[in-house]
């Protein structure tokens, strides 16, 4: 079986939910970067293509103790149970139209191969996948702003956040051209949502590279979580969590917050469970 080796990249993201303002720049930057279409009515959020979607979370308390936080959600680029690359969506796609990149950790989506069975959408608990229910249409003249780096999708296929894969390709080409085959500089590969964020809430980089900011913030634990052998790469930073970590999806998008209620809303807990679990961060912590 193929394994992620240490030399491979493992691109990931950390989003600071205390800094995120819910402004939506990341959403628009993503749409503009990736030729995402738009239609007349986008107020039904269940058929509105937003590779990056910003959810609004509340602490469910009444006035004036209510609190609100925003949770930007790109594709989580799950590496699946044990981190073996069987993300929920990849493992179900019958046509290999979505695939796990063992060299990058990026979950790809091949629009021309996808035949639109939508099994992957059912499998993804994050609603990160979007189906092209309609033909994409741009008002006359607006096709002029479309970028050649990302092909527009046809009706009937699924699309999702690619971690701006074309930017990875460009950075890799640049690294090659500079004779630097094995190393893409952190600043040379940044996603469009990261660079757009006016609050600097998103940090992107190689989780395998200790020099990269994402690694420094997350401090991913290389050992499986002793409480759940499927979970790998748990953060050793007590303020960092992942969405639905307990399912063993092993996402590579991490979230950061000082607020306990925000961290708690990242997953589901039985009554009283959170208080036992909240201080557990990474296997090595409990190993020593």
């Amino acid at each position: 079986m193929k394994q992620e080796n240490n030399k491979a990249y493992k691109f990931g993201m950390v989003i600071d939910l205390d800094k995120c303002t819910g402004c939506g720049s990341c959403m628009v930057s993503c749409m503009s970067e990736n030729n995402v279409p738009f239609k007349e009515d986008e107020s039904n959020k269940k058929d509105s293509i937003t590779w990056m979607r910003v959810y609004k979370l509340t602490n469910d308390k009444s006035f004036p103790d209510t609190q609100v936080a925003y949770m930007p959600r790109p594709c989580q680029h799950c590496s699946g149970k044990g981190g073996h690359g069987h993300s929920p969506c990849v493992s179900v796609c019958p046509a290999t139209a979505t695939d796990y990149g063992y060299d990058t950790g990026i979950v790809s989506q091949i629009y021309t191969r996808c035949f639109g069975c939508r099994y992957c959408m059912g499998a993804c608990p994050y609603h990160a996948r979007y189906f092209n229910w309609w033909d994409p249409k741009w008002p006359e003249g607006m096709e002029n702003y479309l970028s050649p780096n990302v092909s527009p999708r046809m009706r009937g296929v699924v699309e999702k956040c690619s971690f701006c894969y074309h930017r990875f390709q460009a950075a890799r080409d640049q690294a090659y051209a500079e004779g630097n085959k094995d190393e893409i500089a952190e600043e040379n590969y940044q996603t469009a949502c990261t660079t757009a964020c006016p609050a600097g809430a998103i940090v992107f980089g190689d989780l395998n590279n200790p020099e990269h900011m994402v690694h420094k913030i997350v401090k991913p634990d290389p050992h499986p979580d002793p409480r759940n052998k499927h979970v790998i790469g748990k953060s050793r930073n007590p303020k960092v969590f992942r969405l639905l970590e307990r399912l063993g999806t092993n996402t590579k998008v991490y979230y950061l917050s000082e607020r306990e209620w925000v961290r708690k809303s990242g997953d589901n807990y039985l009554d009283g469970e959170w208080d036992k679990i909240k201080n557990h961060h990474g296997a090595s912590v409990s190993h020593d």
Partner: peptide
């Protein structure tokens, strides 16, 4: 979504997929 590509399920078969 793409009936004319339905045969990709056989051609590009992913053995991990139940489908």
């Amino acid at each position: 979504g793409q009936p004319l590509r339905g045969w990709f399920i056989f051609w590009h078969a992913n053995v991990h997929s139940m489908l």
